[in-house]
Amino acid sequence: MIRRLLLIAALVMAPLAVMPAAPAQAHQQKIAISTLMVNPRTGALELVHQVPVHDAEHALRRQGVKVADIIGSEASREAFARYVTRRFLLEIDGAAVTPDYVGSEISGGSLMIYQEIAAPAPGAQITVNSQILTDVWVRQENRVNIGRGTGLVTLLFSADSGPQSATLAR
C-alpha cells in the first residue's frame, strides 16, 4: 500500500521536477535598483543601475522598438541604457550633473548599466530622482542605495515620487 502511494506521488511530482523555471521569470518584476558609491581605487562616484531584462524589453517595445532583444542585441541594450540615463536625475550639492556612460552588460536576469563621475567631497549632498520605468508601470518601485557599509542610505521611488536627498558617506 505504501509503495503504491509513493509511486503515485512520484508520478504526480515528476512533471513538476522537469518544468523549466524560465516562464516564472517572464513576468515583470517592476523594480529597479541603482547603487551610487565611491570607488576608492579610481576616485570616481560609480552608478550601477540593475533592471530586469524582461522589464527593459517591455519598456523598449512601449517606446516603439519592434524587436526588443536585450540579451541578443547590443543596439537594444544601448537604447535602454540611453533611456535609463534620461530617467535617472542626479544633483550634487544642488548642482545638476550628468554622469558619463561607461557601458552595460547582462548579469543573470538583469541588465546592468554603468555610469560614473568624479567623486564629490565626503559629506556632499546627493539628490536623486529615479523614474526608471515609472512611465511604463504605475506600480514600479526604484531603490537607490547611496554609499556603502554602515553609511548606506536607501531611497525609495515610485511614479509619484519627487527628488530625495542623502549625504554621501565614505
Rank of each mutant, 00 (worst) to 15 (best):
Q28R: 12
I31T: 14
I113T: 07
V51C: 10
A124M: 06
L133Y: 00
R87T: 14
E57P: 07
G149R: 03
P99W: 09
P163D: 09
R61Q: 15
G94Y: 05
I117D: 06
I146G: 03
S161V: 02
A75F: 12
R3L: 12
Q131E: 07
S104P: 09
L11G: 12
A96P: 14
A56I: 04
Y83V: 11
G94M: 08
S34F: 05
L7H: 13
M1E: 11
T85S: 13
P52V: 11
V144S: 00
V144H: 01
A56G: 02
T42N: 03
K30F: 02
T98Y: 12
L152V: 12
R139V: 10
M19D: 10
M37T: 12
L90S: 02
V128Q: 04
Y101G: 08
H27W: 13
D135I: 03
P20D: 04
I71W: 07
A22T: 13
A96G: 13
S161K: 01
L111F: 10
A24C: 08
L168G: 00
V51W: 04
P52M: 09
V144W: 00
E46V: 15
A124F: 02
A79P: 03
V38S: 04
R170G: 08
E78H: 13
P20T: 05
G94V: 09
P120S: 07
A56H: 00
K66A: 14
V136S: 06
L11F: 13
I71R: 15
L47G: 07
A9T: 12
Y83T: 02
R139Q: 11
Y83P: 02
